[in-house]
Write a protein that binds this DNA or RNA. Sequence first.
RNA 1: GCCAAGGUGGCAGAGUUCGGUUGACGCGGUCGCCUGCAGAGCGACUCUACGCCGGUUCAAAUCCGGCCCUUGGCUCCA
Length: 496
Amino acid sequence: MTIRVSNTLTGEQEAFEPEDDSVLLYVCGLTTSDPAHLGHARLWVHADVIDRWLSHRGYDVRHVENVTDVNEKIVARVGADDLGETEQAVAQTYTERTIEDMRALNLKRAEVYPRVSEHIPEIIELIETLIERGYAYESNGSVYFDTTRFESYGALSNQSIEELQAQGPEDERAEKRHPTDFALWKAGGVTPEEVESHRHEDAHDAETAAQTSCTWESPWGEGRPGWHIECSAMSMAHLDETIDIHMGGQDLVFPHHENEIAQSEAATGEQFARYWLHVRLLDTGEEKMSSSLGNFSTVQEAIESVGTNSVRTFLLSTAYNSRQTFSDATLHEATERWDRLERSYNRAVGALDSADAIATVTDERLRTAVADAIAEFEAAMDDDFNTREALTALLDIATAVNRHTEDSEYDYTGLKAAVDAFERLGGDVLGLAFDTDTGGTVTVATEAIELVLELREEERANGNYERADALRDSLTEFGVEVEDTDDGPEYRLPDA
RNA sequence: GCCAAGGUGGCAGAGUUCGGUUGACGCGGUCGCCUGCAGAGCGACUCUACGCCGGUUCAAAUCCGGCCCUUGGCUCCA
């Protein structure tokens, strides 16, 4: 049961071998400057499933996911769209929305979601250590990391420092010794205008010029932390100097993670993270994924549209280390996959609870199919968390169950195994909620639906099919799927 | 320019690490069974797929060489 993972550090897939049964996992979660879109959700959900699988395999996972609430991107939003007049206010708004999104995605809660604004002392302390050890220098009230002092700089992203020296923004070069040096601490604050002019020429016309970003006192004067130091500080503060897995989006490999490694290892002399897993990006084919695209770009919209389970199924339909395409067609496919799974699950549960489930009936085809599928699921997850294959295994169970229930007598043991597999692997590991019948409002709705169905049955019995169809159509409009079976009508509630 | 990842059937997307089970699974489409109808489900079909050209081999999507193309990063970005 060796688990294999793709390690960006080595560029190869290798056996995952933590030092003991505990796994320290750090995920570069989100900068709270915009509503989270499906790309963010992709990282979260894959990190969530990796956490769940490692736990399933017996590891004690300590999962930390950061919330970057101090950042120029946030400052850029100050004064826009009534988000607030300060960096904290904007960050607060989006931190709350982010947490809501995470809850809605049915993510297992991380051990802690540390925020940058709460870790300024740790950050300052880390910078002081770097200065003491000669890896950082002060310049004009700012502090920079001297990349030429860190020998393996560029190792993660496979870039030579010589190549990199030629690049970098001109305006920052003046204060730095080398173009590749990066800020650990930046003197003073920044205004939205400064950020915007740095990013776009014709950005929003904020009139709040007086508003500035957050600043803190430091040994180098008033200022704010640089772009990468927070992850090093928080990873060490909440986990350890060396952790097992550091995750993030592929776009963070350089410079973010490269810089994290440099500053962390320079400060501690220890390896920062053993395995670097990067979730590849979500693209939309031709168009770029952006909030201006509309439709399902935000997590909230996607969930409102097709439900949590379909969104998760979609995100897990492509392995984390492969690029994924988002489109109406691919999302539709995912909803169909989820629907098939859920229908089959309900079918299995219904059969199991019926009088036709008989202890002495044996369907070898069902039993071996379920056993094979479980083995396939486990092998797929062990093989670099191949969620696509894992989902396939679940769908194989669905097919086996559907075939089996074509008969009139059911193999109790076989169906029980199938239901358990759905709940244990699909539910606990992939985080798909098969059981949606919870809550008082659902109960009331259920009764109302059943009443309508009773009426429809009466109409059908009397041959009033037009009337019966109208009743069914009205339920369909509310998202209630009606399905006539030999045992009478059944229905499925909308997923949300 | 530098770095990285890819090019598989109408779409999407596994398989490539350790060459030789199923053209995975699903979506879409067609037909049949079932059914008052629809849906779901089952069955069958739809496709002699692996960017191009060579090479190694009994055998290559999978290994080697060359070429073409796409995308991403190199500036904040999951």
